[in-house]
Each structure stands twice: as structure tokens, then as C-alpha cells.
Design a protein around this nucleic acid. Structure first.
Length: 851
RNA sequence: GCCCGGGUGGCGAAAUCGGCAGACGCACAGGACUUAAAAUCCUGAGGUGUGUAAGCACCGUGUGGGUUCAAGUCCCACCCCGGGCACCA
């Protein structure tokens, strides 16, 4: 028996869908909406890999199922096409990135169509097209033209920023408050690439043998830190994988503590430190400043001058990685200066050490070696005093020179004339000391975040130009919305200028010009935006992709994203866990800015988030060319068909699990599809005469209804592997029937349709239907068909299974007991013994405890 | 080091609330069809022991303990694998 003609069938239905626009999604507000989104791909030259269809099949099943359940489903696809790989390809081949991108997009689109995904291609978007990046630039301007009002906890137009009396440079004051701003900050400069790398990119390139050093450069930054608390708080509104929420929480890194001022001896200066354990201030036996701390030069004594300089110099040369990474050995230098512990009144040494980070807190710490492991290690190494000021709550005694006691406990030896912490619990002591500090005006309660502002500029050609103009006189202006898009000029050479600027700096005709609005000689910003920019808001554009007046129309946004601020957004967002922090955090940030201006209606962009697991090579290793274990979807489709690939990727295991590919395993789903086909088709592709209008047996009816029920439930739970197992059971059951009841076959095809749409369409047509199965309703099931009159119950003696018996489903405990006692196997085991206890669970089991 | 997730047959896995462990599939074995093979259909199968056999007994969800009539599932301790963070005071 040959296999079903999947080549013809799949090709036929793909063109059928395309010609009839089967999956066109109207903005039809009369129906409930369902928005299901994949993280849109970067169209690489290599084409789709086998991992892409995993998430895409899952969302396609959901989309098709929800459509059959009566929803208006938005299930779009587009291209996140700016970025370094294409630019590097262009550098070596001379092929323009826009041409390379178009080619790659064509390949991806062909492959996606080949897999039968039901996208509305009228809504296709591409981040590299001017009609798209016009709005990315517009969003940048929105950020640039905004400041964050801490009291209202929202972004507001920069014109509404109150300028304090006596401010001479108003522009400078505004720049200091804009959500997009320029800063000189040390960045990861890679000489060979001639570009700055993001922190997350450093490993990738150093791994490839490139060297990366720290160099201060003029960079655009986004003030995401202003949103730290909201990004943290609003996680409560989303239905995400717990681990992803936690990763975001850790990334944002909120910690509560206090700032305390330590007077520097012999000066009027004070050093402010941040600590989460102000209750341990009596145990602060020295101070440590970050090597970059501005006070270092003031504090350092003549004798220590040279050593300090040398240490600072060494610290600057070290990369972040070297400073924090492998070398755990602590280093530091005494400045020669002393400070006063404001609580104990002790004179304490001031050191510099690179275990204190300049960019966190105040860039200075009070070292409490008795109750902080890092301080303990440092103090031990340099012979600094270690004292205990917190006792374990159980009153046990410990040797504080041996190791730090970092847990909460009871304060000890912590008092001065005005203040007594001794005897208080850690949380009481924190409150007490903070009040004292505030009363004295030498400290206050503070909250710190690990999150840092977003380095937003890249020295690359293939990205969105930043719409800012610089004038000769040192002033600048932002483009106005009517001047957008600021088009990326055509260039022949895509290499960075090598000066730390992008290739744009070498395009004389573009970069230098007379600004028509002001008549001044001007220069465009030559930095471009990072790849994250386009993906920060694309989910909104899918709702209204051709709108030239707005990035998304008001009503359309409200329909697809919802109007309830605390819920709503994209209903289901599926993508890799590698984007758990950055993409999702950045997109949430932009969304909140848009929310502050009323451009969007929900606080959060993505209501439910799901990460599909990785598909490994057959050897259980990550797929890679060098390992030679790469599976190409084109090959699989050619050999087994798209339905088989879709089904197999879903059958492999739970969607979220990492699981290996198996070339043998796919035979199982191929067989299943063939069995489904033969259930109702003849060899010559016509409906089998065995499909007839006959009633179902009770057993068949039960199987059919159980299948409908389970498939609906499993799809809702993204549990596709078990849904497929159920369909296999259905087919096994009906294969053995001589005559196949037509009604069961029809309902089965409707169940199969979301998973294997091509074969389902063909079967649906053979069953005599003239329209697409994709537009039919999902069958409902009859709960009554599922109830069984008699069920098998387990008979146990002393909790061991000794037999089984059929009992009426409604049997009472007494009846079950009688049935059990009548069972020969049970009798054998209870014979001559006392029944000490009876456990009878109706519908499940009877258990006699004998002795 | 810290925070998550996970360990179930030869393999991928399944198992609402604690109630028949291993559904479904792969691979395997036997049978039917065939000159033969493939394909297909049917049947079998966690392991060990025992028996000619139907069967019977014991063991079994990473390890060790615990709770319970009953534990893959709950509790405690530990081991291993995957992911994330990593001097954030």
C-alpha cells in the first residue's frame, strides 16, 4: 500500500489558500478576537532551521483551532531584518543588505508557505522598510521628547518639564531629563569589527577570537531605569512562565536599604554609601570606594598617591568580565585617608577596590566584614578589623574571624549616646537606625535597582537612522514627525568608518547638509539603532500594518489588544527562552511609554507567554553545522510532507521541553497520517465505499467524543503531544471497523484539521464538502457519551492489587464491598484473616487491610 | 556560589485531586498476506525469579529516609543533568 499523495495534496491546498485569501483577517469587531503571535524571525541566509517550525506549528494549531471556535484570529508573520549578520554578509560579498534581506525573506516566506502556516500575508511587516522604520523613529522621538514625572509615575512631554529658577542652560537641563539622551560612557569597543558591542554580544565575539576593550564613547541611552519599579510591579498582570518572570525580576534587581554619609577626616566632605544592612553600621570597620569614585583624588594621601594611581589605571584597563569574572581574588589599595563611622564614632580606613562597582548604588560601601562575605574576605586578606554586631537568633556563639554571619539575627554591641540597636531584631534595627539617620540628616531609606539604562546606539549601517540633527554651533534638533522617515542612504561600502562611527559617517552627501528648516549647516547622527528597536513594537503594527497616519489606529489597537489596562494585550506570545530578559523587557518598556501617552490601552503588551523548547540533533547535541547533525526542514517536507513534519514536531514531547530529533520517529506520524487517509480513502483518491451513514456503536461513540474533548482541552493547554496520541487511538479504533460511520469521520477530520491541515482539507473535500475545512466549526462533544455503565475497579488486599472486577459506575460503597468480597482472588488473600480496615473509593478501588 | 527547571522501559514519552506506573509512538519479536521482500494488517512485550503452560512470586519512576491503607505524585536530606545570574553591598 502506497502512502497518500502528500506532494500533490499539499501543493494544491497551499495555492488554494493563497488564491482565496483563506487566512485574511478582517478587523471584524463583531467577533471576539484572539491574537496569537510568534517572535518574528531574523531572516538569515541559511533559511529556516528545524527549530522554527516548532513554535510556528504550535501557534498555527492554536490559530486554526480558535478560528474554528468562532474567534477572529490574528496570526501574523514578519521580519526582524536589521542587524549585524546581514551587514557582515554585505561587507564580504558587496551585495547590498536590502538585497540580501529581500532574498532571505523570499526564502523564509517560501519555506513557511511550504509548511502550511495560515498567516495573513496582507499584514506582513519588515522592520527594514522605510514605511515601518518611520514609526520606529517616531517612537524614538517620543522617547527623546519625554521626561519621566516621578510624582505622577509617567512619561510627559519635555515641554512640560518645570525648569528651575536660575537655570542658565535650559537645553542642557532638558537633555538631562529626556528618556533618550547622549552620554559618554565606557563601552565595549571592538577594533576589528570597528564597532561597539552590547554586553550580551561581547561573549559571542570574544569567543570567536576578537578582542574587546573598554572605551568611553558618545552614546545614545534610553532611560529605562525610570520604569524599573513599574516593569517589576506590572509582572503581576501577566500570565508568563514563572522562571521568566523571575529572570526579569532578578535583572531589574530591586533592593531596599539606606544611604549613609561618612565624614572624611580632615575635610568637609562626606562619602555616601549604599547598604541593605544599615543595622550593621556599628560593625563597619572600613570604607571601600570604587576605583573610579570621584572622591578618590581628594582623599588619597601623598604616600599612597602612586599606589592608588597605579591601581586605578589597572582597573580601567580591565574589562567588566575580568573585573568580575574568573579572578575571584580580591585586590585593593589603602588611600591613606580616614573616615568617621557616624554611629560608633570610630576612625576607619578608606580603601579603593574593584569589588565595589562604580555604577551601582553610590559607588562606595561601608565594609562590614563580620556580616558580609565579600567584606570578610577582603578584611582577612588585608588584615582589617572584623567585629560582630549581630548574633544568631538562636543565641549560638560563633567565631566571627572564621566566617561572616550574613543572616538576620539580634543586634549586639550596637549603641551610642543617642541610639541603641542592641537587642533588636534585624528588621527592628533597620527601622530604628534609619529613623536615627534621617533625624540626624546623615542618611535616608533608599531603593536601588540593578537595571541600568539601555545603551541604544550602534556604530552600524544596517539599522534605523536616529532622527537627530547636529548643527555646527553645537546645538541639535530632533526631526519632526512630518520629516520622517529619515531614510537610510545607499552606500557601496558597509564597513564602519573605523573611527567609532558607522559607515554613514563616510557618506558625505548624506551626512553633511544644510537644514532646510533652520538654514544652518548640519550633520545627521551617524549612529543607528540596535536590532531590539524594531521588535519593541512590531506586535502593534500587525494590527494595522498599512496605516500611514499612525503606527496603529486607536480603535484597531483597542480591538486587538483590549481595553482593560490590567489585562489584555497579545493573547498568546510564543518564542524562545533566550529572549526571556532583553527583548521582552525592552518591549514592555516602550509599551509603557506608549501607555503613558494613551497610544495603547493596556499596561502590558503580552498577556500569556510561552517558550518552546530547543530541538536537538539526533545525537542529543545542539544542532550545528560543525557537528553535522543539522536537520533541514526542506528535506523532511520533500520526503514526508509538511503535515508529517508539523505533526512530528508536536509529537516529539511537551512543547516546552528540550528534545532530540529522531529520523526514525517521524515514521510513526507518517504511518498515522497514512492510516487516517486509508480510513476513508480508496487507492485512487476517492472516498471509500466503506464510509457510510451508519450509527456508531457505544464504544465508537465514546471514542469519538473522548477524542473531541481531549483535543480541545489539550490544544488549550498547548499539550499537543497528548492530543496527537488521542487521535492515534481514534484511528486505531476505527481501523478495525469494517464500515466507517460517516459522522465520526467528519468530526475526526475537523479535529485533525488544525494539526495536519493539508490532508484534512483533502479528506474534507472527499467527504463531499466544497469549502475549506479551516472555516468550519470545531465539533462539540456529548458528555453523556463518555459515561460508562460499568467500570473496572481495583481490588486490593493490604494495599496490593489482588484482582479486578467490573462494577456499575453508580455502585455504592456497600455494593463495591460485596463485589470485592465475592471475588475469588480477593477471597484467596483474606481467607482465615480478620478484616481490620476497609478503604472503599467509589469508581476506583476497594482495599481490605487484613491481619 | 545563588535562583529556576528536570531525572520514569532499549529510545521519545504518558499518568486531573495521592488510588491499576509505562497511554501513544519508535525500535524489537511472532503471525497473516506475498514466489520473495517492502508496505499493510493482527498479536506480544518494564525487570528478575519460577513453571511444560495458563500462571505465580518478588522488584521497579535518580539515591537515602519519612508521612499514608496507598507515593512517580506530599515532606526532609543528598546526587546528577539543563538553563539563568554571578563581587549589585
Amino acid at each position: 500500500m502506497s502512502s497518500y499523495p502528500f506532494h500533490d495534496v499539499e501543493k494544491y491546498w497551499q495555492s488554494y489558500w493563497a488564491e482565496r485569501n483563506t487566512f485574511a483577517t478582517p478587523n471584524d469587531t463583531s467577533k471576539p478576537k484572539y491574537y496569537v503571535l510568534d517572535m518574528f524571525p531574523y531572516p538569515s541566509g541559511a533559511g529556516l532551521h528545524i527549530g522554527h517550525p516548532e513554535g510556528y506549528t504550535a501557534t498555527d494549531i492554536i490559530a486554526r483551532y480558535k478560528r474554528m471556535k468562532g474567534f477572529n484570529v490574528l496570526h501574523p508573520m514578519g521580519w526582524d531584518a536589521f542587524g549585524l549578520p546581514t551587514e557582515r554578509y554585505s561587507m564580504t560579498t558587496g551585495i547590498h543588505p536590502s538585497v540580501a534581506t529581500a532574498n532571505n525573506v523570499a526564502t523564509f516566506k517560501r519555506q513557511l508557505s511550504m509548511l502550511g502556516f495560515g498567516y495573513d500575508w496582507n499584514r506582513e511587516i519588515n522592520t527594514t522598510l522605510p514605511e515601518y522604520y518611520k514609526w520606529t523613529q517616531w517612537m524614538f522621538l517620543l522617547l527623546y521628547n519625554s521626561w519621566y514625572d516621578e510624582s505622577l509615575r509617567k512619561a510627559r512631554p519635555i515641554e512640560e518639564l518645570q525648569i528651575p529658577e536660575g537655570t542658565d542652560d535650559v537645553e542642557k537641563f532638558r537633555d538631562e531629563h529626556r528618556l533618550a539622551y547622549i552620554a559618554m560612557i565606557p563601552v565595549n569597543w571592538c577594533e576589528e569589527l570597528g564597532t561597539v558591542l552590547a554586553n550580551e554580544e561581547v561573549d559571542e565575539w570574544t569567543g570567536k577570537g576578537y578582542t574587546v576593550e573598554r572605551r568611553p564613547m558618545r552614546q545614545w541611552m534610553l532611560r529605562i531605569t525610570k520604569y524599573a519599579d513599574r516593569l517589576l510591579d506590572d509582572l503581576q498582570f501577566v500570565d508568563w512562565v514563572q522562571s521568566t518572570k523571575e529572570m526579569q525580576e532578578h535583572w531589574i534587581g530591586k533592593s531596599e536599604g539606606a544611604e549613609i554619609e561618612f565624614p572624611i577626616l580632615g575635610t568637609e566632605d562626606t562619602v555616601r554609601v549604599f547598604t541593605t544592612r544599615p543595622d550593621t553600621v556599628f560593625g563597619a570597620t572600613y570604607l571601600v570606594l570604587a576605583p573610579e569614585h570621584p572622591f578618590v583624588t581628594d582623599i588619597v594621601t601623598e604616600e599612597q598617591q602612586e599606589a592608588v594611581k597605579e591601581y586605578q589605571h589597572a582597573a580601567v584597563l580591565k574589562s567588566d568580565l575580568e573585573r568580575t569574572g574568573l579572578a575571584k581574588e580580591k585586590t585593593g589599595v589603602f588611600t591613606g585617608g580616614f573616615a568617621l563611622n557616624p554611629a560608633s564614632g570610630e576612625m576607619i580606613q578608606v580603601w579603593i577596590a574593584d569589588y565595589v562597582l562604580a555604577h551601582y548604588g553610590t559607588g562606595a560601601i561601608m565594609a562590614v566584614p563580620g556580616h558580609d562575605e565579600r567584606d570578610h574576605e577582603f578584611a582577612t586578606q588585608f588584615g582589617l578589623p572584623i567585629i560582630q554586631v549581630v548574633a544568631p537568633p538562636d543565641g549560638s556563639v560563633l567565631d566571627i574571624n572564621e566566617s561572616a554571619f550574613t543572616e538576620n539575627g539580634i543586634s549586639m554591641d550596637s549603641q551610642n549616646a543617642e541610639l541603641k540597636l542592641t537587642g533588636l531584631t534585624t528588621s527592628e534595627a533597620k527601622k530604628e537606625i534609619t529613623q536615627w539617620l534621617e533625624r540626624k540628616g546623615i542618611g535616608k531609606k533608599t531603593i536601588q535597582f540593578k537595571l541600568r539604562d539601555w545603551l541604544f546606539s550602534r556604530q552600524r549601517y544596517w539599522g534605523e537612522p536616529i532622527p537627530i540633527i547636529f548643527f555646527e554651533d553645537g546645538t541639535k534638533r530632533a526631526l519632526t514627525p512630518d520629516e520622517l522617515p529619515l531614510m537610510l542612504p545607499d552606500v557601496a561600502d558597509f564597513k564602519p568608518a573605523g573611527t567609532g562611527e558607522s559607515a554613514l559617517a563616510t557618506v558625505e552627501s548624506w551626512v553633511n547638509f544644510i537644514d532646510p528648516k533652520t538654514g544652518k549647516r548640519a550633520r545627521y547622527e551617524t549612529n543607528t539603532m540596535p536590532q531590539w528597536a524594531g521588535s519593541c513594537w512590531y506586535y502593534l503594527r500587525f494590527a494595522d500594518p498599512h496605516n500611514n497616519e499612525r503606527f496603529v489606529g486607536n480603535d484597531i489597537e483597542k480591538y486587538w489588544m483590549g481595553t482593560e489596562p490590567n489585562s489584555g494585550g497579545v493573547d498568546l506570545y510564543v518564542g524562545g527562552a533566550e529572549h526571556a530578559v532583553l527583548h521582552l523587557l525592552y518591549a514592555r518598556f516602550w509599551h509603557k511609554v506608549l501607555f503613558d501617552y494613551g497610544y495603547v490601552s493596556t499596561k502590558e503588551p503580552f498577556q500569556k507567554l510561552f517558550h518552546q523548547g530547543l530541538i536537538l540533533g539526533e545525537d542529543g547535541e545542539k544542532m550545528s553545522k560543525s557537528r553535522g547533525n543539522v536537520v533541514n526542514p526542506d528535506d523532511i517536507v520533500a520526503e514526508h510532507g509538511a503535515d508529517a513534519l508539523r505533526l512530528f514536531e508536536m509529537f516529539l514531547g511537551p512543547l516546552e521541553a528540550t528534545k532530540p530529533w529522531s529520523s526514525k520517529g517521524i515514521d510513526g506520524v507518517v504511518r498515522f497520517l497514512n492510516r487516517s487517509w486509508r480510513l476513508m480513502m480508496t487507492e485512487d483518491r476517492t472516498l471509500s465505499p466503506n464510509v457510510q451513514d451508519i450509527p456508531l456503536t457505544d464504544e465508537q461513540n465514546r471514542m469519538l467524543n473522548a477524542t473531541i474533548k481531549k483535543i480541545g482541552e489539550d490544544i488549550e493547554q498547548l499539550s499537543f503531544n497528548t492530543a496527537i496520541a488521542q487521535m492515534m487511538m481514534f484511528v486505531n479504533e476505527f481501523t478495525s471497523a469494517e464500515i466507517k460511520p460517516r459522522s465520526a469521520m467528519e468530526k475526526y477530520v475537523l479535529c485533525l484539521a488544525s494539526f495536519a491541515p493539508h490532508i484534512a482539507e483533502e479528506l474534507w473535500k472527499a467527504l463531499g464538502h466544497t469549502s475549506s475545512v479551516a472555516l468550519e466549526s470545531f465539533p462539540s462533544f456529548d458528555e453523556r457519551a463518555l459515561v460508562q455503565d460499568t467500570i473496572e475497579i481495583v481490588l486490593q488486599v493490604n494495599s496490593k492489587i489482588r484482582g479486578k472486577a467490573n462494577a456499575p459506575a453508580e455502585a455504592t460503597q456497600d455494593e463495591l464491598e460485596q463485589i470485592a468480597l465475592a471475588n475469588a482472588d480477593v477471597q484467596k488473600h483474606i481467607e482465615g484473616k480478620d478484616i481490620k480496615k476497609k478503604i472503599i473509593v467509589p469508581g476506583k478501588l476497594v482495599n481490605f487491610i487484613v491481619g
